[in-house]
Design a protein around this nucleic acid. Structure first.
Length: 942
DNA sequence: TTGTCCTATACTGCTTTGTACCTC
DNA sequence: TGAGGTACTTTGCAGTATAGGACA
């Protein structure tokens, strides 16, 4: 390692010094240390004395700075390899430890102290500069030497560099140290206090987040499917017939009257009719279960499957077939969800265009707060069905309905099994039979009696629950051109705000509200019901990716109506109006990332509010601005990359601290901090302060370049006027040869190892040179290609020559020495080739060094079949056609380059081998060596 | 008890124009 | 001798989202 390089490395903490200064400094340091006995540690681990210090510098010593430690107290953690090297020279006994220093005792009793080099150096240097003790490096170093008589600096790593000295030279300090703390000689025991485990907030990892989102998506699809099936059941004619048979005649007549004409008057009649229908339904249908509920992600942990399944069954109906669905309406009981679904069937039976609406309760992909899902679950009696329907159910009603209820004691415990059996049998029920019809009539007649008693029993339970439902309905009012929501469970008509659950309701989270149309299409109507769409609801949904991909939107598009109706457009407009007129949040945190409103405090680093008008409100004294006024800012360089330039005279709207990424910037920042200067800042500009980049023109073929000698070509529009970008790497050489002025085209930057390297792709030249350069380039490229081909050909022929010569030598040796000893061998035949099984002769496939010289010749004969010929010297073995399995060519892939493919009649290659199909004779041109082949055996031609 | 804000933590992605040395 | 290729460099860091806790 050169002294110059050593100086450069040492310069890491002294960037303001020139290399020459540092070379001098290094030399001075070496001189100054000559009075001290230093044992330094080069990377090799061999100790070096100060007498060899000059060599030491040259060896790139990874030495350390050694100073006496006065009050070692804390554990020092070392990670440097250099120290490990040092430790090999001493006993592994740490005598005393300091925060950044450590004392080691050698086998001979001498001691060494370590201190990381950079901390000491920087501390001293900063201190000196700060107090203006000396601006001169030399005086500073002298001062250091006074404080620390032993030191040497050689930095390879910032904090891992160590230097060893013999502490006998600083015995005074050590004596002091020894007096205060006697140092043991041998092993010591270090006891660490067990650290207090502090469980801190932990976010989820990227993978975990992806898994959660996928689970969330899968659940959404399952819920969509569930809704589609139930919606289809709502169209069931039998179910609708049963529904129609249950509705009182007067009510039916009212609906008939309301549907006569489409106007406001009749629409109002329809509203009244719907209200009456809801009241009737509420009295008729007994709620036995709360229905689907939302679950926290962590509830789906391992070993919870059984519990969840059991839990779900007790919460919602498991309608296994449409017959069970039909039965539910005839008996008039079920969960809140089933109630709403059946009500849709009722409405459709009356000829009213009704949608089944569902708030999909997909498992959240966000982390639930600690035990939140359990602790904040509803404890109100509204949904605590256990204490309502079950225990308080009137026995008379149960008897009449033939029902057992949940938790009715020992009797009720057998409910599930008996119920399931009954459901199973009901699956096959034929409701069109007279007997069943009479059962419906019976139910119809007795319904008022039954329901009154049930209602009484459920007065504090599910029947009168005010909790927003999961399923409800929507009815289209043509007169108002609006969809009105109807909640049959609570008998509410057109109260969309009542459908939104409380924000802390963990059982019912409103994130996706979808409406299933009568014809099966699905529409997202969340915005009609979510009052805090921008502030809350939007954040609960699958986020739109940065490149704009909206999974939910795409998924729903598969189920959306392929054509648009007038009422759909009207509805879209209405939903959009609801979205943009969302009321302002009442908390400051809700303004964070709100799509409509913004506070200055939430602006990001590269954002600004422009213009600061209008102020659309105030929250705790802070002005509220429209989100559309939040504008993105960029540095002039970033705008240039976008193909825009800052207009002359524009001042930065904002100054931000520069990001320090590259080494160059870091050095500059270090220098600034060294002199207590302000860190460098970048000015930011808005798009309105920029204009499209206007490239300079090419004058007299001279390409304008930037300060780095290149041409910025971040966008095609940045090409100099009259110039052209030729995106071919290497064409610059051609331009240079022709004396054409050109500039390397910088199309971007590559960031590697904290360095920014421009990505150059092709050149920019004047347009008039383009054709000439391209032609020259093609010529050059073909020339290079031909050269490469010729080179490769030469290499192949050389190898063939070596092969043939090698085999010839072998043959000669064989004939001279081996053949003579084989008295049994027939003349003219060689066991060497066919005497052993399948041609695997020892020599041919032997373990000799020449083994690799067995090459393959792939010959295409006239009939077009491929045959593989293995050539050894003057002989060729022809293997079976296209059957490589019996050949020993397993290595042919590795020596593919050594294949010689010889086309028929191809005489272009000197010394090529030609295959004549007529007489099956292979001969080598220019060598006058013909080879006869008989039945696959080889015989030299006489 | 609830809503809001602050803090700690983890993740994401921004950064924006070399050079010494070796081989051919 | 010059062109071209390769290795070295480093163990970031600021901004942002979010969970958890404190507090009104």
């Amino acid at each position: 390692m050169s002294l110059r390089r050593s100086a450069r490395i040492a310069n890491k903490n002294k960037p303001n010094e020139s290399v020459e200064q540092l070379v001098e400094t290094s030399k001075r340091k070496v001189k100054s240390k000559k009075s001290i006995e230093i044992t330094a540690v080069p990377p090799s681990g061999k100790s070096t004395s100060i007498d060899n210090i000059n060599n030491f510098v040259e060896e790139e010593m990874t030495g350390v700075l050694i100073t006496p430690v006065e009050t070692p107290a804390e554990t020092f953690i070392d990670k440097g390899k250099t120290k490990d090297n040092f430790l090999s020279l001493v006993d592994n006994t740490s005598i005393n430890k300091g925060k950044s220093k450590e004392i080691f005792q050698h086998s001979d009793g001498s001691k060494s102290i370590f201190e990381p080099i950079d901390s000491f150096w920087l501390r001293k240097r900063k201190s000196a500069i700060k107090h203006n003790e000396s601006s001169d490096i030399e005086s500073l170093e002298n001062q250091e030497f006074q404080d620390n008589p032993v030191h040497y600096i050689n930095e390879d790593n910032d904090s891992d560099d160590w230097e060893e000295i013999d502490l006998s030279t600083c015995q005074d300090q050590l004596d002091d140290l020894s007096e205060s703390k006697p140092l043991p000689n041998k092993t010591i025991q270090i006891t660490f206090e067990k650290p207090k485990i502090q469980y801190k907030a932990r976010g989820i990892t990227k993978i975990e987040r992806a898994i959660r989102q996928n689970v969330h998506k899968a659940h959404l699809l399952a819920l969509l499917s569930h809704g589609m099936i139930r919606n289809k059941w709502c169209n069931d004619e039998m179910t609708q017939a049963i529904a129609l048979s249950l509705i009182e005649y007067d009510l039916q007549a009212l609906f008939d009257k309301a549907l006569v004409k489409v106007d406001v008057k009749h629409a109002n009649i329809l509203i009244i009719a719907l209200q009456d229908l809801c009241k009737w339904w509420k009295n008729y249908f007994v709620i036995t279960k709360p229905g689907i509920r939302n679950r926290a992600y962590h509830e789906f942990g391992e070993n919870n499957e059984g519990k969840i399944a059991e839990d779900d069954e007790s919460f919602s109906d498991c309608l296994t077939s449409i017959n069970v669905f039909r039965r539910s309406i005839s008996v008039g009981e079920g969960s809140r969800d089933t109630s709403a679904q059946l009500f849709v069937a009722v409405l459709r039976s009356l000829g009213i265009p009704a949608r089944l609406v569902c708030s999909l309760q997909a498992v959240s992909f966000k982390l639930a707060r600690k035990n939140e899902a359990y602790t904040t679950r509803k404890k109100d009696n509204d949904l605590d069905y256990k204490g309502s329907t079950s225990s308080s159910m009137n026995e008379e009603a149960q008897r009449t309905l033939g029902l057992g209820k949940y938790k009715l004691g020992a009797k009720g415990k057998n409910r599930s099994s008996s119920k399931s059996k009954r459901e199973q049998s009901d699956d096959d029920d034929d409701y069109s039979s007279p007997s069943k019809q009479s059962r419906v009539d019976r139910l119809r007649k007795s319904s008022s009696v039954l329901k009154n008693s049930l209602k009484k029993d459920n007065s504090n339970g599910l029947q009168n629950s005010n909790a927003p439902p999961i399923f409800w309905c929507e009815v289209y009012f043509a007169a108002y051109k609006k969809w009105f929501c109807i909640d049959p469970v609570r008998a509410l008509v057109n109260s969309p705000q009542a459908m939104e659950p409380a924000s802390n309701d963990m059982d019912n989270v409103m994130a996706y509200v979808v409406a299933f149309e009568q014809d099966g299409y699905i529409k997202d109507v969340t915005r009609r019901y979510a009052s805090q769409w921008g502030a809350r609801t939007r954040k609960l949904r699958v986020p739109v990716t940065k490149d704009g991909y909206d999974w939910w939107h795409e998924t729903l598009s598969y189920f959306a109506r392929p054509y648009e109706r007038k009422q759909d457009n009207e509805e879209d407009a209405h939903l959009h109006k609801l979205e943009v007129s969302e009321r302002m949040p009442t908390s400051i945190s809700a303004f964070h990332n709100h799509p409509l409103y913004a506070l200055e405090r939430h602006l990001k680093k590269f954002e600004i509010i422009h213009p600061k008008q209008p102020i659309i409100g105030n929250i705790r004294g802070e002005p509220i601005y429209p989100r559309k006024n939040v504008k993105q800012l960029h540095t002039a360089e970033t705008w240039l990359r976008e193909g825009r330039q800052v207009m002359i005279g524009e001042q930065p709207l904002k100054h931000v601290k520069s990001r320090i990424y590259t080494l160059a910037k870091r050095r500059a920042a270090n220098m600034a901090s060294l002199y207590d200067e302000e860190p460098p800042e970048s000015g930011l500009y808005g798009e309105w302060q920029t204009e499209e980049y206007i490239p300079e023109p090419i004058i007299d073929g001279k390409v304008p370049r930037n300060s780095y000698g290149n041409v910025n070509m971040f966008k095609e529009s940045m090409c100099p006027i009259g110039g052209v970008h030729i995106p071919i790497n290497g064409i610059g050489k051609i331009a240079k040869k022709f004396g054409v002025d050109y500039g390397d085209a910088v199309v971007g930057f590559d960031f590697q190892a904290r360095r920014c390297v421009p990505v150059i792709h092709g050149i920019v030249v004047a347009k008039e040179h383009e054709t000439m350069l391209l032609e020259a380039w093609h010529e050059y490229a073909s020339h290079v290609e031909a050269m490469n081909d010729a080179k490769r050909e030469r290499e192949v022929l050389t190898r063939w020559r070596r092969l043939i010569m090698g085999v010839q030598v072998r043959m000669r040796l064989y004939n001279d020495y081996v053949k003579q000893d084989s008295s049994d061998m027939e003349e003219g035949e060689s066991e060497f080739y066919h005497g052993e099984s399948e041609g695997e002769s020892e020599l041919y496939h032997g373990d000799t060094e020449e083994e690799d010289n067995n090459y393959l010749v792939n010959v295409v004969n006239k009939s077009g079949s491929n045959e593989l010929h293995e050539t050894i010297g003057e002989k060729t073995i022809i293997e079976s056609n296209n059957d490589k399995s019996n050949t020993n060519f397993s290595d042919n892939m590795d020596i593919e380059d050594d294949f010689v493919r010889i086309e028929e009649n191809d005489t272009s290659t000197e010394g090529s081998i030609t295959w004549d199909d007529k007489d099956e004779e292979m001969y080598t041109e220019d060598k006058n060596e013909d080879i006869n082949i008989e039945g696959g055996f080889i015989r030299e031609k006489e």
